[in-house]
Design a binder for these strands. Structure first.
Lengths: 156, 156
DNA sequence: CTGGCTGCAAATGCTTTGCACTGCG
DNA sequence: CGCAGTGCAAAGCATTTGCAGCCAG
């Protein structure tokens, strides 16, 4: 984790940006909540808890900066309000999401299924893919179970 | 096209909504610009051209209604501002997009590659997929060509 | 002292809401 | 009448921008 933080800092520095306490705090929050798909407001709250003087605009600016450097990815599920994910560099692309339309939970799944598709797109359309984004909407295991439960009761 | 309009109207009526002139005009605009990924403002402009008294809010309300009925799909590329696509019912799911990061052009490509993946997700995660969304970001054929051209000149 | 970075407040831009009005059943 | 649907203006919300101040090099 600490090493991860180190590596991220260096990425910033290499591009000529300073690692300010605010940016470090923002990165740290993203790192500590890697699985949570935080939105800007949530990142702000968490950063503010450690660093009460920070302004919301600064968090936005940090997130935009990091997103431009492809250190975090900015995602947009249907709700207004973007969400931010740390982007681990052992994944060449974004990871994919299972979004439950019942309970709103977002699960992550892994990559690599799409590489053949990317090759095909390049061949057929002359389109050189640099990134992709794949989301599935549906009903998660838990909500499925609840649904079946409800159906069972309705019968009895 | 006219039959298509008919079918869409019936979908509205069947759900208990009226086919008002405003809603019809909105549908017609979407139908006539099926390939264009219009945003709300653009739909509004086009509807207003035929129907000058309509209000922006009404267009938003129509689009939201149609989107709720899955007659149109509301998509969100990275730019602020949702875009709207008519959803043809011979495609069970959304179609996919090739988004050029150079010129912003959006191409559509067809579906059906993902069905095996959906099956796998249901087996492995217990997640019943009802819909998916797949976008590729990259550089389109034209921008690729321009880029190569530029590189060639730089050498000479 | 210079330029990057910050906080604050104001501005922006898309979208939604409140409300009074209208027309159809 | 009752109620869905409408237009207009105002509100709402996430995000961006302007600007003065600050700090490291």
């Amino acid at each position: 984790m600490a090493e991860h933080m180190d590596k991220l800092s260096k990425q910033l520095l290499n591009k000529g940006y300073k690692l300010t306490p605010q940016r470090e705090a923002t990165l740290r929050v993203l790192l500590e909540n890697e699985k949570d798909h935080l939105n800007a407001e949530e990142v702000y709250m968490l950063v503010k808890a450690k660093n009460p003087n920070i302004g919301l605009a600064t968090v936005y600016r940090a997130l935009e900066l990091l997103s431009g450097l492809h250190i975090v990815e900015k995602i947009n599920f249907g709700d207004g309000g973007a969400r931010f994910d740390l982007r681990s560099d052992d994944q060449p692309h974004m990871h994919h999401h299972l979004i439950c339309t019942r309970c709103g939970k977002v699960e992550e799944i892994m990559d690599d299924w799409l590489l053949p598709m990317e090759n095909r797109i390049e061949r057929e359309f002359g389109f050189k893919v640099t990134d992709h984004r794949l989301d599935f909407h549906g009903v998660c295991r838990e909500c499925n179970a609840k649904e079946r439960e409800r159906a069972r009761k309705a019968v009895s």
